[in-house]
Design a protein around this nucleic acid. Sequence first.
DNA 1: TATGAATGACAAGTCACTTGTCATATGGGG
DNA 2: CCCCATATGACAAGTGACTTGTCATTCATA
Lengths: 157, 157
Amino acid sequence: MGRRVPREVAVTRVVDGVRSLFHELKAVAQEVHGGSPFAGGRRGVLLNLLEDGDQTVPELARRRPVSRQHIQVLVNELLRDGLVVRKVNPAHRRSRLVSLTSDGRRTITAMLEREKKLLRGLHLEAEVPQLLAAAEVLKELRAALRDPEWRATLTET
Amino acid sequence: MGRRVPREVAVTRVVDGVRSLFHELKAVAQEVHGGSPFAGGRRGVLLNLLEDGDQTVPELARRRPVSRQHIQVLVNELLRDGLVVRKVNPAHRRSRLVSLTSDGRRTITAMLEREKKLLRGLHLEAEVPQLLAAAEVLKELRAALRDPEWRATLTET
DNA sequence: TATGAATGACAAGTCACTTGTCATATGGGG
DNA sequence: CCCCATATGACAAGTGACTTGTCATTCATA
């Protein structure tokens, strides 16, 4: 205990924690939403629409690190399943706005509710302030990884 | 500021942070190790061998959440590339131990060194204690997700 | 009004896995 | 000592979540 830990080792521990937690979360998510095809990418699209309102497919794609074409596929599936509809876009005739149907809105809010309820039941010793501090560190770390100056050092050597 | 944040919201923030950070890390990793085929699964296998010594394929598989067959494929590739060799297993004639070659050892330690060096260069405001605290929270969260009692609540309803 | 970028649709390919099957080995109970 | 459930390696096929490429249409702008 109390041994001095070098900075890069501390960062590594966070990174490792992120990795294993992510895999754990994926497994849990699969269990939570059952075989329901609304996990993963679809959930993300619905969430974006809920939070940021109607958008075109390319707009949705720009907000996340996946290709425009893939978002298109997800949206097409959601259209097929009646969770979203296309609305006339005053700013673009061809590229219509994707908009949640009431069914879509109900689906995504129900998923979020279910997730929150489950998270509330976790047996966690960490208190709220510690959780928030951890979230803050993650956010900062993410920002640091995006820093163009740092990114430049990656390709050196 | 200072507004009370409910527990489940705090947890959600950590979870969201983990998700986006993971994706960011994946992108960075790809850049760091270039097109080198030693990222991802292979890196993990080499790391396990470095940390825990010679093991059989099934033993390696039990340590991570992927199928035995997939580990087998990864190990076969590493064998082909001369990063590991098979050694006689006193405890099992058929299932030989997988062991790092000096080349394999050099490869994985070089990767880890490179990663550490890069992490050291990050422009991070968080200090070491905060990083360690965050890592601790992640670990605890992961443990909580594994809790069988909690897992049982997932399938109720 | 010509030109290049954005968009939707579609196709094919890739990556990191999983599931299934089979033959061979092993280890523990009868 | 033999039998059988289980473990292992090898191989094959399938899957989910993406990417890349292409094309025709539509838009923005010089």
